[in-house]
Simulated assay, not measured.
Amino acid sequence: MLAAQRKDHLLDLLARDGRVVAKAVADELGVSEDAIRRDLRELAEEGKLQRVYGGALPIPEPERPVRDRHGLATESKERVARAAVARIRPGATIVLDAGTTTLAMARLLPSGAGITVITPSPVVALSVAEHSDARVVMIGGELTRHSLVTGGGLAMEAIQHLAADVFFLGVTGVDPLHGLTTGELDDAVTKRALASRCTETVVLASEEKVGAAARFPVLPFEAITAIITDPLDANPIVERLAALISARE
């Protein structure tokens, strides 16, 4: 098979499966892994895919502004949010990350439970105040207009003085191979800082997040307590994620 044919095959695989595993393709085509890696490198240089360890992924789409994400997988996010709220113990101090699933959680928080909510998101903070009697602690800092979350030096300084029971973490992608990822570097840094100040970190993974991958890693699976997925999500990756978490127990 000519190099041009191999490249077309690689792009077809990427479109069909959402990923390319170099060893598997090499075995399938009866060529060396070096040849496949060379093809992937050239395709990456042409801007047609993103090389990762062991293969390739599609070029990640730019992170959508938060206002454009409200209509994505709305019912799935609601189911994940309900499952997450059910984990909150009375009197707990929790951190709600910025994002549309945590915004759904904010609308579902119970009153009379003595909960304290810490958040870097003004939108989430206002929703918590509107829908519950929870105490609200805002993390100050510079507001990123794209994601509507505070960050930067002031936020990092404030985070170092906080402590919480559970961090409900929102990410762009949750994938067994590529881990927990997000599309903004500064957001990834803020998320790691928040996780370091919490006893537990719980990942929120509605259906459009499962199997997706973005450019910047957030945390390894070893650093999280649980992943909450949509109970109606039939994606086989959900079972692989559950196995990853249960294998540590």
Rank of each mutant, 00 (worst) to 15 (best):
T93I: 10
A24K: 03
R37Q: 07
R87A: 12
G151I: 04
R82D: 06
A106D: 05
H9P: 05
R145Y: 07
D97E: 08
A226N: 11
I118Q: 05
H146G: 01
T144P: 00
P236V: 14
F167E: 09
A125H: 14
S111G: 04
L162S: 10
M156V: 12
D97I: 06
L241R: 06
A106C: 07
L57T: 02
L108S: 06
A83E: 15
R6W: 11
E63L: 15
V189N: 05
R87E: 14
V66N: 09
R51V: 01
L40C: 09
I139W: 04
I59Q: 13
A213Q: 06
V21E: 02
K77E: 05
D133C: 08
E61R: 08
A243E: 10
L40Y: 09
V117H: 14
L169A: 11
R145G: 12
D8T: 06
L96Y: 11
R19P: 02
A56V: 00
A243N: 02
L14D: 13
R215T: 13
G170V: 02
A35T: 12
A226M: 03
E63K: 15
D230Q: 04
L194D: 15
D133T: 13
T182M: 06
S206A: 06
V137K: 12
P90H: 06
D175I: 00
E28I: 09
E75K: 08
R197G: 13
G152S: 09
A205T: 02
T74K: 08
D27V: 03
P62R: 15
E28A: 09
L219C: 07
F216V: 10
V238D: 12
I36A: 02
A129N: 10
L143P: 00
L148C: 01
V123W: 08
A213S: 15
V85Q: 14
L194R: 13
T144W: 04
D165A: 08
F221E: 00
P217D: 09
H178K: 02
V66E: 11
Q160P: 11
S111P: 06
K23M: 00
R89F: 14
V117F: 14
A92L: 11
L72H: 03
S132C: 13
V85N: 09
G179W: 03
A214S: 15
R89Q: 15
